[in-house]
Simulated assay, not measured.
Amino acid sequence: MAAAALVVVALAGAEAQCLAPSNLRTANGTRICAQLYTNNSPYYDQCWGGSALMVCPGSDVPYMPHSWVTAICSLVVGTRCELTVWSRASKKGKSRSFGAGMVPRLQEVRWGLFGNWNNAIRGFYCQCC
């Protein structure tokens, strides 16, 4: 099952560190597709705090883990990777794809006239080439 490729690492209480897209790797060198963060700060350099969710290449997660349902405020996508997210569980609702790069404040990423992606990710798929 593809969902087994998801690795959840909660760094609660510790200050998570933002990694550059080209440096998204575990301690043993395994590639990470994306990393999602919970801290919502008005200061860009502090957007990478709180807990971090590591997403392995090929992760297909139609339902976010319970504690992450309304928590994602920033993200980093690895080089040559793409993260597709949905606003509703089971890959429904609005969708958006993020290519390699850093998004420190999802509240600045709009959907439609009034919405944004802050705390709105309910499912995702991440792939790398």
Score class of each variant (00 low, 15 high):
76 V>Q: 05
106 L>T: 06
42 P>N: 08
105 R>M: 11
3 A>C: 03
83 L>P: 01
65 P>M: 05
42 P>W: 02
100 A>G: 13
14 A>L: 13
126 C>K: 12
72 I>Q: 01
94 K>D: 09
115 G>W: 12
38 T>K: 10
13 G>F: 02
107 Q>Y: 11
5 A>I: 10
89 A>G: 12
116 N>Q: 02
54 M>R: 08
83 L>K: 01
60 D>Q: 10
23 N>P: 03
46 Q>F: 07
18 C>T: 05
71 A>G: 05
11 L>Q: 11
12 A>W: 11
18 C>V: 11
5 A>L: 15
91 K>Y: 15
17 Q>G: 05
83 L>A: 04
60 D>E: 13
6 L>P: 05
104 P>F: 05
125 Y>P: 04
118 N>E: 08
114 F>C: 04
77 V>D: 11
114 F>V: 04
65 P>C: 04
39 N>L: 13
55 V>Q: 06
44 Y>L: 14
1 M>D: 15
52 A>Y: 07
74 S>Q: 00
68 W>N: 09
124 F>P: 02
68 W>G: 08
62 P>C: 10
124 F>L: 15
105 R>F: 11
20 A>D: 08
15 E>I: 00
107 Q>T: 10
55 V>D: 10
98 F>L: 06
126 C>A: 11
101 G>C: 06
7 V>Y: 02
64 M>N: 02
60 D>W: 07
72 I>L: 00
34 A>W: 08
79 T>C: 01
